[in-house]
Every structure is written in C-alpha cells, then in structure tokens.
Simulated assay, not measured.
Amino acid sequence: MSAAIAAAAASACYSSTTKTSRTENNHNRQHQNHSVLSSLSVFSPSPPLVLPLFSRYETQKRRDWNTFLQYLSQHRPPLALSRCSGAHVLEFLKYLDQFGKTKVHAQNCPFFGFSQTPAPCPCPLRQAWGSLDAIIGRLRAAFEENGGRPENNPFGVPAVRLYLKEIRDEQSKARGIAYEKKKRKKAQNVEQPNFG
C-alpha cells in the first residue's frame, strides 16, 4: 500500500510540476511576445501626418499673396512690403495683364463692342476685370492676415478702386458686356391664412 501511495504522490507531484512549468512557459512566451511587439512599435512608421485641406478661396489667396511677394522681390529696386503703396499695386495689376486671356478690343477695332469676335483681330489679351477685382479682394485680406494694418493696406486705397472701376467700364464697352451688380431679392412677405 505504501508503494501505491508513493506512486500516486509522485504522479501528483509530476503533474503539478508539469502544470507549473507550462504556466511559466506560457507566461514567458507572452512576455517575449509583448516585448517583441513593443520593440516593433518603436520601429513601425508613425501614422501619416494629416495636413489641413484649404478651401479654394484660401488656396487662391495664398497663391496670389506669394505671386505678389515674388513681384516685390523682383521689382527694380527690390521693394519691401512695408514700403508698398497703391502705385505699386497698380503696377502689379498692369504686370498681370501679360498673363490675361480676355480679348479687349481697341476703339479702332471693327469688333469693338462685340462680346463674340467673328474673326481674329490684333487686339491684346488682358486680365478680365472680374479676375482683377477678385485678386485685389484676396490680397487685401491676405495683407491683414500677414500682419498688415487695415489703415496701411495698399490694396484698399481709393486709387486701386478707381483703377478697377475704369477697367470695368473700359472692358464693358470694348466687349459689349454690361457689368451690373446683382440685386438682392427681398424676401416677400406672404400672408398666412388665419385659421382661428
């Protein structure tokens, strides 16, 4: 009997040792997996940097601002933004005409006053009034966003507004297009029937 008890005790001790070693092995394996994963996370690439998306207006404003700053740097002599005046803005608008795509007929052109040209003519391509007006609006906003004071804003001086008005009138006559301000529709008050 004592031999049977000794065998049972040995068997119980063996299974307990096996369970303990299995548990220790599993724990060690989990610890190794965790350390491998944590070391991989050090070398794994970080998530991609998400850049804010700009609206079309903001993108155009940045582009116009950079173009104007480049124009100032290429000015002879180079011109600092703090010394920029309305006269320099007018020079910039005239400079932009070389990139224009709008046919503006001269007064002696047979197509003066025609919006659609039936045949080619030597009249120059210029910036459309609407494009220039939009550029000035964006540059006026960009100037103040970049630290300029509203009272020193060269894009809002009367000379620039007058120039834009002259360009609008000249192009409307030359191209036979009337530029009219859109009238805001007033909300019509519709009387509701009284059911009381």
Rank of each mutant, 00 (worst) to 15 (best):
N25D: 07
H27M: 07
N28V: 06
R29M: 01
R29Q: 11
H31D: 13
N33T: 14
H34S: 13
H34G: 08
H34P: 00
V36L: 14
L37P: 03
L37T: 13
S39K: 14
S39Y: 09
L40I: 15
L40C: 14
V42K: 14
F43W: 06
F43V: 10
F43M: 13
S44L: 14
P45K: 13
S46M: 11
P47M: 09
P47R: 14
P47W: 00
P48E: 10
P48N: 05
P48D: 12
P48T: 09
L49D: 07
L49F: 11
V50H: 10
L51A: 08
P52A: 06
P52H: 04
L53P: 00
L53E: 09
R56M: 01
Y57D: 05
T59P: 02
K61Y: 00
K61A: 14
K61R: 15
R62K: 08
R63F: 08
W65F: 07
W65S: 04
W65L: 02
N66H: 06
N66V: 04
T67M: 03
F68N: 03
Q70Y: 02
Y71F: 15
S73A: 09
Q74M: 09
P77M: 05
P78L: 01
P78T: 04
P78E: 06
P78A: 03
P78N: 02
L79E: 00
A80I: 00
A80D: 10
S82N: 03
S82R: 12
S82E: 13
R83G: 06
R83F: 02
S85D: 07
S85V: 04
S85M: 08
S85N: 04
S85C: 07
S85G: 10
H88E: 15
V89N: 05
V89R: 04
L90Q: 07
E91C: 07
E91L: 04
F92G: 05
F92W: 15
Y95T: 03
Y95D: 09
Y95W: 12
D97A: 03
Q98K: 14
G100W: 04
K101F: 00
K101R: 12
T102R: 02
K103V: 14
H105W: 05
A106E: 11
Q107M: 10
C109M: 03
P110I: 06
P110M: 02
F111M: 12
F111P: 06
F112W: 07
G113K: 00
G113S: 07
F114A: 09
F114S: 12
S115P: 00
Q116A: 09
Q116G: 03
Q116E: 10
P118C: 07
P118V: 12
A119Y: 01
P120N: 13
P120D: 14
C121S: 07
P122T: 01
